[in-house]
Amino acid sequence: MEENTIQATLEASDDLSNRFLTFGIDGAIYGISLTNVLEIIGIQDITSVPNVPQHVKGLINLRGKVVPVIDTRLKMGKPERDYDDLTCIVVIDIQDMHIGLIVDKVEEVISVDLEHAAVPPRTGIQEKQFLSSVVEHGNHTVLNIDLEKFMADDLRQY
């Protein structure tokens, strides 16, 4: 019985690695690996913190835990936009830190066949390229984000 549960958990975690949560930013659809996603919450009061880069919006209270939030639009260098009913915070776990990503809207969870996914070009121009793969899903293109790369500047210790 117990073994079955463990097996199921293993399979589930196995499953997660090629499943992506997709969300919309400025009309485009991005995806992040479900292994990093902890939960999705609606937008809530954010306490701003002084002396930090503009895209670091501040802190939220996630059931007693203080979690920093980042505006994904600003992080991507896109113009800021007022939050609305669809705006969500995707709480991710990366390098043992919990971080909230503010996104325009959350779309769905998709399964991706990573072996057949297109790999974005890597040239000198795209040094800051943070996409891990590009896949077609339904009638739109999903740009999968490599969170480690995307957040590299924020995760650096100094």
Binding site: V49, V66, P68, R156
Partner: peptide, 24 residues
């Protein structure tokens, strides 16, 4: 959160944060 370590908030006059009675 350790996320803020590199911004050196401690030397800019902030020692930490707290959750108030109203949840903020």
């Amino acid at each position: 959160p350790p996320f803020f370590n590199k911004y050196n908030l401690k030397n800019s006059g902030l020692s930490g944060c707290t959750i108030l009675g109203n949840g903020s």
